[in-house]
């Protein structure tokens, strides 16, 4: 990296921080650099995907069943509304202070954030499936299980994935403050300014933003791949 850092101001310093590292504000050691960046990025992705997987595994089957049998509308819909009101910072801080720091507790706290939008969207998506399609499937002799997996689920994919994407954005954003719960993610560059300096803070911000956008793009792609061909035809 031979570009003169000064010509880019703080962005140049952030660039240097990511690729070659800088001396810590506290002096002595070198912080930043590709190996630490990749380390923290990998940790952030790991935490995010784990929590998202837990949220999907819990909320998706519940939403499918509640939606299929038309039960618990109040629960499913108010979960989504209540979920938005949870202050992420308070949730992480309380989890760390009351239950303890560490990977397991962090993943639980992040999964709690991811469950409401997936549950609500799955429920709504299944309820929106045309009842005559379900009746036709039943008339063809499909079991309830097959109706859910072969008829309702494919037709509800866009709505369900909308919920998964909302959950993923919430989780990766909140994983940024995971250092409060003792797990060092890219957010450490942002939060521990006294160590990394403003160059580290800006570098962290850019990396977190890029990572969130990449995850969103990947999930949009996954949604496209999971949507059945018939539904894509209908839309165009």
């Amino acid at each position: 990296m031979n570009l003169p850092a000064a010509s880019f101001g703080l962005f140049g310093e952030a660039f240097e921080f990511v690729f070659s590292g800088r001396e810590a504000e506290t002096g002595g050691v070198t912080v930043g650099g590709t190996s630490q960046v990749l380390d923290l990025a990998a940790r952030q992705l790991e935490v995010t995907l784990l929590a998202l997987a837990v949220a999907v595994l819990l909320a998706l089957p519940a939403g499918l069943l509640l939606g299929h049998y038309g039960r618990g509308e109040f629960l499913a819909v108010s979960a989504g509304n209540a979920g938005r009101a949870i202050p992420e910072l308070a949730l992480i801080a309380l989890m760390a202070a009351a239950v303890g720091v560490g990977m397991f507790n962090l993943v639980v706290a992040l999964a709690i954030l991811g469950i409401p939008p997936i549950l609500t969207n799955t429920f709504v998506g299944i309820r929106q499936v045309d009842r005559s399609s379900v009746e036709a499937a039943r008339g063809m002799g499909m079991t309830e299980r097959k109706i859910i997996t072969r008829v309702e689920l494919p037709l509800a994919v866009p709505t369900i994935m909308g919920g998964v994407r909302t959950a993923a954005i919430n989780i990766i954003a909140t994983a940024t403050i995971a250092p409060l719960a003792g797990i060092l993610t890219l957010g450490d560059f942002i939060i521990a300014r006294n160590v990394y300096g403003d160059a580290g803070v800006l570098a962290g911000a850019v990396l977190v933003a890029l990572m969130a956008l990449a995850l969103e793009a990947a999930l949009a792609g996954a949604q496209w791949a999971m949507t059945s061909r018939g539904m894509k035809l209908k839309r165009s």
Binding site: G187, L202, A205, V206, A209, A212
Partner: peptide
């Protein structure tokens, strides 16, 4: 959509300069 996806905590510091 891009502005919505960028986590707020990251956005704060993108504005830092």
């Amino acid at each position: 959509g891009i502005l919505y996806t960028i986590p707020s905590i990251s956005f704060f510091f993108l504005l830092l300069p």
